[in-house]
């Protein structure tokens, strides 16, 4: 891992973690920084991409995939996660679906003052829904991705990874 890459979350690392944790299907809706990851996933013949037009749809699709024997991951942004509240409650928590939601943390900053209400309510939302979550800011946090998968299995329910690298992480041209 290079010094440069260690300061951001590389799409290659995210893709590698998906593979190492047995992900078979990515149920997703693009956010502003996922295009490079999209290209990686699309070029992987062992990953099926299921695109949705509204994030809440991802929950019941993932539930069905799991029920039938696949291992999906949900890849969405925090705005869409909040929109998905009832589907997370009913389809993921209600059916005990051990799925990881990888959620772009739009507006996240550890510096200065947050100016984005999407970030303001993200962790409050997760706490309200009693969803365990792990913040991943850079490649140095990559081991937390496996922890999230293990936690989902142990809890028999959804666990969230907050990708707190929204403004430069998935696009190599911005490194």
């Amino acid at each position: 891992m290079s010094d440069a890459s260690s300061n951001v979350l590389s799409p290659e690392i995210v893709h590698r973690e998906m593979k190492q944790n047995g992900v078979t299907d990515v149920v997703w809706l693009p956010d502003s920084e996922t295009n490079w990851l999209y290209l990686l996933m699309k070029s992987d013949p062992d990953l099926r991409l299921v695109g949705v037009s509204r994030e809440g749809h991802a929950c019941s699709i993932a539930a069905g995939l799991y029920a039938g024997g696949r291992k999906p991951i949900i890849l969405i942004q925090n705005t869409g996660m909040m929109e998905s509240g009832d589907s997370i409650r009913g389809w993921l928590k209600g059916l005990n679906i051990p799925v990881v939601l990888m959620v772009g943390y739009r507006g996240y900053t550890r510096h200065g003052v947050n100016k984005d209400t999407a970030a303001t309510y993200t962790e409050r939302f997760l706490n309200a829904f009693d969803l365990q979550y792990y913040i991943v800011e850079s490649d140095r946090d990559a081991d937390r991705i496996k922890i999230a998968f293990d936690e989902a299995k142990k809890r028999n329910g959804p666990v969230v990874i907050l990708v707190a690298d929204e403004f430069h992480g998935f696009n190599p041209s911005k490194k």
């Binding site: 929950c59 995939l65 696949r70 589907s87």
Partner: peptide
């Protein structure tokens, strides 16, 4: 037989899709 009642309205189509893709 997968009777689920109404986990969250609007989601049955997605659940059906997921099961169909998996099996």
């Amino acid at each position: 037989d997968l009777p689920l009642g109404d986990p969250a309205m609007g989601g049955h189509a997605g659940f059906g899709l997921g099961v169909a893709l998996a099996q």
